[in-house]
Design a protein around this nucleic acid. Structure first.
Length: 309
DNA sequence: TTTGCTGT
């Protein structure tokens, strides 16, 4: 176990997470943050979960890739939007917000192969499941969503992870969910946006997709602005007011194009085109407190939202 | 098609 942790640390150092360590063993509330191995207390690292459900650095051997290239470093090639409570799964990476019980951001890397039809993969066999790597105080449960009227909406879409049954199953962790309006949003307008992102793999060899919630202020009748959002269930899971997607496509000739979208978490008329939700990426960064694709010099971007820059 | 829910 200890050797394995050292390996993980070495792997993650390569992608710029060294020095990210917050100890939690203080004799109080230590059930999930510390683990006893061979009579010694091991402190879990936020970026390096010791639980079997998550793996920080599994070498990606699917297509003969170098053993030095981890799937995590492929997915996160253009930078981490933030570093709060990182969890990495076999085919996506997220940052979890303990306060809202909803992720800050979820990162995916798509290619044609990842979304190709695969008869070996069956979504109907998947179950929504709580993520045991999150402390119980901050963990969302199926019971929180039940009867709430909201869908358990995937941030990393199940349809983006068809390479392996294990990959699609891991998108069903509740760490990857946020309460979404079902009719007219998750099952319709938002779904259309997800399909649009998948279609980008026809134009680009590599598509990098970052998805997450927003809690936007709104001016109320007293003329002042407030951030107001519903919470659901015993664990008070936050219902985001909006969701964003920031997407970068890498063309065969190496040019990079970016698209950024914000959609309100509400019923949206069916005829509304996806393009009408485009916004300047900077507005999402300011609202979310995150920096997207900060390893890409903006001068290397050919287009933003379809316009030359 | 893909996104999910509720009721049995």
């Amino acid at each position: 176990m200890i050797r394995k942790k050292v390996f993980h640390l070495a792997q993650l150092s390569a992608i710029g997470l060294t020095g990210y360590y917050i100890g939690q063993c203080n004799g109080k509330n230590t059930t999930q943050d510390c683990i006893e191995v061979d009579g010694k207390l091991l402190t879990s690292l936020p970026a390096l979960p010791v639980f079997g459900t998550v793996s920080a650095a599994v070498p990606y051997t699917e297509s003969g890739g170098s053993k030095d290239t981890t799937r995590v470093s492929q997915i996160m090639k253009y930078g981490f939007p933030g570093l709060d409570n990182i969890r990495s799964y076999d085919d996506y990476v997220l940052s979890y917000d303990r306060r809202t019980r909803v992720p800050h951001w979820v990162f995916e890397h798509l290619t044609k192969a990842h979304i190709a039809k695969n008869d070996q993969v069956d979504r109907s066999k998947c179950d929504f499941m709580p993520d045991e790597s999150i402390h119980p105080f901050f963990r969302s449960l199926n019971s929180d969503y039940k009867g709430s009227g909201f869908d358990r909406g995937h941030m990393a879409a199940a349809g983006n992870h068809r390479l392996a049954q294990k990959h699609v199953e891991q998108t069903f962790y509740l760490t990857n969910m946020a309460p979404q309006v079902g009719e007219g949003f998750n099952r319709h307008a938002w779904n259309r946006l997800e399909k649009h992102v998948r279609k980008l793999t026809k134009l680009y060899d590599h598509v990098y997709c970052c998805t997450g919630p927003l809690y936007l202020p709104r001016k109320e009748s007293d003329g002042k602005s407030y951030v107001r959002y519903q919470v659901i269930g015993a664990n008070t899971v936050a219902v985001p007011t909006h969701f964003y997607k920031v997407v970068v496509g890498e063309a065969p000739d190496g040019t990079l194009d970016m698209e950024a979208y914000v959609m309100p978490n509400q019923k949206i008329p069916d005829e509304t085109p996806v393009s009408s939700f485009m916004v300047p990426p900077e507005t999402i960064e300011r609202a979310a407190g995150l920096l997207f694709f900060d390893k890409i010099h903006r001068s290397k971007l050919s287009r933003i939202n379809g316009k030359k820059v």
